[in-house]
Design a protein around this nucleic acid. Structure first.
Length: 502
DNA sequence: ATAAGCACGC
DNA sequence: GACGTACGTGCTTATA
């Protein structure tokens, strides 16, 4: 956990204060204490940019923050979920002001980045005080925008109060049984070595199995497993799980490659990495939750990501077993809404069959199958239920007929028929009030599909004549999308890739 | 350092 | 007939 170098405050536009804190923990805490009457006062609202970070840091110093929160990052997330929400970008876009860049003070993010502690206090003062001033000014801009977009309740009743809950969860952390993982690591290493040996023998050559490039060459050039093997856009052979599964009956080597991949993933991402993430002070793992990353409103988790701990395979569940209660007086309880997304969407779409199924406490996938295949619930076969489950998943994910066909290994025509049987939900998902593709920042038209979405903002600035994107043009477009439209990096790259393909 | 390919979760 | 296809994070390899 980082060290607090100083505090900055602002309560009036254009005016701010900076309080440096000592590097000595006790001295720092003594100064912090002077601010307790404000920080811990529940009647004083706290405004901040990514304020969970500040709250958490203060918690590590023993300082409890109280009061109603207003996070400018979360406010902007609610105003325009797809955009970037960094303070510098927000200041430039909404206050027409370029703040002192943190990079100028301590260098680029990464290993080489220095510490704010080593920057002259006179310089830090300017940076930090400006930070507080800007945040306050952004709040004044965003508050009416939240009202205008009817997101005020979402901000004041959901996102901002949740900040305290997440901060508590992150602070608390979770205990990991290092010994369980150490043992598992050894077992995995043995099995990986076995798979490796098999693969080299069957291939008749030693190579790096973890390299998709080398693997593709072995499978498709040397062993000729598929004369029509698909290639990626960089000209490599595709060797993803879906492709390899289809090849498995053709050659014994494939199953060993698949198991090599699974084992390697478990070992490197979880079994070996998690113990490294244990905080030496608390002996526990403290993830971070990000409230403003996923454009769909979901949370995300990183350092480490605790939202993708394996569960599907037996080996994976062994990893989960390493998450344990803090002591003999505690237990870990798992609680999860059942089918919450389908319940909400059935209610919003007023899908009577599905609503009835939920009301009657039926198995929702069986009920969906009965509806799709027009048979009685008792007559639904295992395969029909499996298909219906894929349909329901597709609904949650906004999947197309193509995606469903891929998932079920059926034709697109068949997939389309199945989807058509679910008209009321599909109609709802395609209706303007649902459509998630809304062009931000001045392009307020709603689009009916992802395709139109890509066409709209880009097509406006770059007509057909300009579609041949040279490298400098790409640079320009990237700059335009990121800086003028505040698009995320990922989204920008998606759009550019789309145009290049076109 | 960054991109590509892959795989884990929901 | 072609198009294009959920949200994330993080690992290893390959390249700049």
């Amino acid at each position: 956990m980082a060290e607090i170098v100083g505090l900055s405050f602002s309560f009036k536009k254009g005016e701010a204060y900076y309080v440096p804190l000592s590097a000595l923990h006790n001295e720092a805490i003594a100064v912090l204490k002077e601010f307790e009457s404000v920080l811990a006062n529940p009647t004083i609202q706290k405004i901040g940019q990514n304020i969970k970070y500040d709250i958490l840091l203060l918690k590590w110093y023993g300082m409890e923050v109280k009061g109603v929160l207003f996070d400018t990052m979360l406010a902007h997330y609610l105003i325009d979920a797809d955009a970037r929400h960094g303070m510098d970008v927000l200041a430039e876009n909404y206050l027409q002001y370029s703040p002192v860049s943190i990079t100028e003070l301590i260098g680029k993010k990464g290993k080489t980045q220095g510490s704010m502690r080593d920057v002259a206090v006179e310089v830090v003062k300017e940076y930090a005080a400006e930070d507080a001033d800007i945040t306050l000014q952004l709040k004044e801009v965003f508050e009416p925008m939240l009202t205008a977009t009817q997101a005020s309740d979402l901000a004041s009743k959901v996102e901002n109060p949740l900040v305290y809950v997440l901060a508590d969860m992150e602070f608390e952390g979770v205990k990991i049984d290092k010994e369980v993982l150490a043992q598992l690591s050894i077992e995995l290493a043995v099995d990986i070595a076995k798979a490796e040996k098999e693969i080299f023998e069957l291939a008749g050559v030693k190579f790096n199995i973890a390299s998709p490039k080398q693997l593709g060459e072995v499978l498709f050039d040397k062993l000729q497993l598929d004369p029509k093997a698909k290639k990626t856009k960089t000209g490599q052979y595709q060797t993803g799980e879906d492709i390899l599964s289809l090849l498995a009956p053709k050659h014994e080597i494939v199953q060993h490659i698949l198991s090599f991949r699974t084992l390697q993933k478990l070992k490197s991402t979880y079994v070996d990495a998690l113990p490294e993430m244990i905080n030496p002070k608390t002996g526990r793992v403290h993830t971070s939750y990000n409230q403003a990353v996923a454009a769909t409103g979901r949370l995300s988790s990183n350092n480490p990501n605790l939202q993708n701990i394996p569960i599907k395979t037996a080996r994976g569940r062994e990893v989960r077993k390493a998450f344990i209660a803090k002591d003999a007086n505690h237990v870990i309880i798992s609680a999860d809404y059942s089918q919450i997304e389908l319940r909400v969407i059935a209610e919003m779409a007023k899908e009577e069959n599905m609503l009835q199924a939920f009301v009657n406490g039926l198995d929702i996938h069986t009920a969906t199958a009965a509806n799709i295949y027009s048979v009685a619930v008792e007559e639904v076969t295992a395969e029909q239920r499996r298909n219906a489950k894929a349909v329901n998943f597709g609904i949650i994910y906004g999947q197309s007929a193509f995606g469903l066909a891929q998932n079920l290994s059926i034709s697109r025509t068949e997939a389309k028929e199945i989807i058509d049987e679910h008209r009321s939900i599909v109609n709802y998902l395609n209706s303007p009030q649902y459509d998630p593709y809304i062009v931000p920042n001045g392009y307020a038209e709603k689009c009916n599909s992802a395709k139109e979405y890509f066409k709209n903002p880009v097509g406006t600035e770059y007509t057909n004549a300009q579609l041949k994107l040279t490298t400098p043009d790409q640079k320009k477009l990237r700059d335009l999308l990121i800086n003028k439209y505040s698009y995320s990096k990922t989204k920008t790259e998606k759009i550019i890739a789309k145009i290049i393909e076109t």
